[in-house]
């Protein structure tokens, strides 16, 4: 063979190559680190700090931050009942992330499944699914959540349910658009010529190609759902005390705004940092998963690349 052609490097499959590309984008690296920390808090927080976070200490009411005389747990200050804020934030990570993860997972699975059907099948069912998506989209979602949660009781399961339903159209539309495009690609036609079944075409040929887009969207949507849950909790129709989430903590601190700003400030910061990290990571994913853009990250790890050659 004498073909003259520039060959691209193999797809990075090893964890090491992924880590190297993560390191190449410093912001994304720290975002990933922070998310890991949040995840650990969610998994281990209630188990490690559960008691400390609920221990009332009336002498330490609204204790100011950056004072470690009471112990490291009080470094961010204490709330109106003298409970250490840092410990409470760590413990609240579990509810906050669990609700978001549940809603994203639920809506992503249902939405993409419906999207696959709507995009691949030419039957009437596809039409009905799209109409359903439009109807959900035209609902004022927050209002709906308020009514539903006011009627049912605002438990974790109900909040996950309401949030999941409102996010289904996002995945439905994206998946359908992707499927409509991928379905017409030559390799799908080639599979049809070979006599591949519809199931094989959808799961072996279409879904793997659409998956990167869906993962990127889900990362972004995780941030969105977290904000929505915080808003509900803030309005008092989300998670109810004594359970805590970051949004609820902001709401609880609101009445002490003028005297003890830290009650609302720190949990809010936790929300911002988590959603920001998710956004940064999603941006990074988009570049990594796009073969035309990936060189920007791969270049930086190498010596022959110019260090200033572009960033995000």
């Amino acid at each position: 063979m004498t073909d003259t052609k520039i060959r691209a490097t193999p797809k990075p499959r090893s964890p090491l190559a992924w880590a190297a590309m993560l390191w190449a984008d410093k912001l994304a690296f720290f975002a990933a680190l922070f998310l890991l920390l949040a995840l650990l808090s969610a998994l281990l927080g209630p188990w490690l700090l559960g008691d400390l976070a609920t221990k009332q200490n009336l002498r330490g009411r609204n204790a100011p931050p950056f004072d470690v005389t009471r112990g490291w747990a009080y470094v961010l200050g204490a709330d109106a009942l003298g409970r250490p804020l840092l410990a409470r934030i760590v413990v609240a990570a579990q509810n906050t992330l669990m609700v978001a993860a549940g809603a994203v997972l639920g809506s992503a699975i249902i939405g993409s499944a419906l999207g696959l059907v709507a995009g691949y099948s030419r039957r009437r069912a596809a039409q009905w699914i799209m109409r359903l998506g439009d109807v959900i989209m035209s609902f004022p979602s927050l209002l709906l959540a308020v009514i539903v949660l006011y009627m049912l009781e605002p438990s974790v399961a109900n909040i996950v349910l309401v949030l999941a339903i409102t996010r289904i159209p996002v995945y439905l539309r994206t998946t359908r658009a992707e499927v409509l495009e991928i379905r017409e690609r030559m390799f799908v036609q080639a599979a049809r010529v070979m006599g591949a079944s519809d199931r094989r075409i959808v799961f072996r040929h279409i879904l793997p190609v659409a998956l990167p887009t869906l993962v990127t969207i889900a990362t972004l949507d995780f941030a969105f759902v977290m904000l929505a849950e915080s808003s509900l909790s803030f309005l008092g129709i989300g998670i109810q005390p004594p359970e805590i989430t970051w949004g609820l903590m902001v709401a609880q601190g609101r009445q002490y705004l003028t005297t003890a700003w830290w009650l609302s400030f720190w949990p809010g910061l936790a929300i911002i940092l988590t959603t920001l990290s998710l956004n940064l990571l999603s941006n990074w994913l988009r570049i990594v998963l796009d073969p035309a853009q990936r060189w920007r990250l791969e270049m930086k790890g190498r010596k022959n690349g110019r260090p200033s050659a572009g960033s995000l």
Binding site: I6, R7, A8, W295, E298, M299, R302, G305, R306, A309
Partner: peptide, 8 residues
């Protein structure tokens, strides 16, 4: 040109 495969 700088590419993923190095300098071409």
């Amino acid at each position: 040109f700088h590419t993923a495969a190095g300098t071409v």
